[in-house]
């Protein structure tokens, strides 16, 4: 029934914005930062698993007492998760949000 609803995609300012180069640039900026970051951090996690399987001698080497490299690297995973989130949050606060806001002001002015 709602198919009868008026179709106004053409003069929709939202769609106009979707097509605007600034918005496209903003999105590509986000992708360029976030996708490599995610790839990096997934790679680091999977590296740990690979090391555990194929470099058992190294991971089983004791550093202090019963503490092995495996344990140390494992605990470092927590630290790296936090670091990555911190990096992302700072980037979003300092770089991305101001630009998004600038675009918002511009678009708000057009309406």
């Amino acid at each position: 029934m709602s198919k009868d609803a008026p179709e106004r995609v053409v003069d929709d300012p939202n769609v106009a914005m979707q097509d605007s180069p600034e918005f496209a640039q903003l999105r590509s900026k986000f992708r360029k930062f976030v996708f490599p970051l995610t790839a990096l951090f997934l790679a680091w996690y999977f590296l740990y698993v690979l090391l555990s399987v194929f470099a058992k001698d190294f991971m089983g080497t004791r550093v202090i007492g019963n503490v092995t490299w495996g344990l140390i690297l494992g605990l470092l995973q927590f630290v790296s998760t936090f670091t990555i989130t911190m990096v992302y949050a700072r980037w979003a606060d300092r770089v991305f949000d101001p630009e998004a806001e600038a675009l918002a002001r511009k678009m708000g002015g057009q309406q």
Partner: peptide, 19 residues
């Protein structure tokens, strides 16, 4: 979906745009 363009704007437009 018919309105996918609009939905995508809605998902990705910056927070402060008063949509």
């Amino acid at each position: 979906p018919e309105h996918v363009a609009r939905t995508m704007v809605r998902l990705h437009a910056p927070e402060h745009i008063d949509l």
